[in-house]
């Protein structure tokens, strides 16, 4: 199966090239709308990377939220910007921006390089190690996964070869969000609600003009 995974590597390079290349287009393109579409493509590339990592749930959410919603809203907002034909003017603080971006990139690269990523080598469970040496599969039924030497033949459980992640990453994510990261989850929710209300407040017309009310009444 090594050859098939080299296909995966090929897909990885393709998706990476798509993500980075379109990101460059976003920065260099003068036409704001084209930049927005390129950004959507870049997001899509990230989504594909998630798929390659077998994190289908995150990948799909990436497409749903970033490509399907955020990019669309960006393109939508661009349509309302006046004087669109002249394109976006170069920003005043280009040097500062470039420096900040380079610093952030350096920090991320440093962190990524120095982090000890957990991999199959880290498994200390003797059963797992034993299974691994003879080839093994993962049997998942929701929030846990069982590593065993051979696939159950007549089970309706989800069966998978181990690729370094849990089979049913969706349920695992859900369980983690509700059990371990409950507080963070709730705080983010609160933050989003606050942002929503703030947005509505900004959008609201001054009370003097009753146009909105009239529109609602006729609806």
């Amino acid at each position: 199966m090594m050859e098939v995974s080299s296909l995966t590597t090929f897909a990885f390079w393709l998706a990476s090239a798509m993500t980075l290349g379109l990101a460059v287009v976003v920065v260099t393109q003068k036409d704001v709308f084209r930049a927005a579409i390129a950004l959507a493509g870049s997001f899509l590339g990230v989504g594909i990377l998630y798929f390659i990592l077998s994190a289908e749930f995150v990948g799909v959410v990436q497409i749903l939220v970033y490509v399907g919603a955020i990019s669309v809203l960006m393109a939508f907002a661009v349509m309302f910007i006046q004087d669109i034909a002249s394109g976006s003017r170069p920003s005043q603080g280009r040097v500062i921006g470039a420096t900040a971006a380079a610093l952030i990139f350096a920090a991320l690269a440093f962190t990524a390089y120095n982090t000890e990523w957990s991999s199959i080598d880290d498994i200390t469970d003797p059963v797992a190690v034993a299974a691994m040496t003879e080839g093994y599969v993962e049997v998942g039924t929701g929030d846990y996964a069982l590593i065993s030497g051979e696939a159950p033949t007549d089970s309706n459980e989800v069966v998978s070869e181990n690729r370094g992640v849990l089979v049913d990453s969706t349920s695992a994510l859900g369980v983690m969000l509700i059990r371990e990261y409950m507080l963070a989850f709730e705080i983010i929710g609160l933050l989003l609600v606050a942002a929503l209300i703030g947005g509505l407040l900004l959008m609201r017309n001054p009370p003097s003009s009753s146009k909105t009310e009239k529109g609602d009444a006729s609806a």
Partner: peptide, 8 residues
């Protein structure tokens, strides 16, 4: 829509 847009 309550958002003021540029008239077209």
């Amino acid at each position: 829509m309550a958002v003021k847009t540029q008239p077209v």
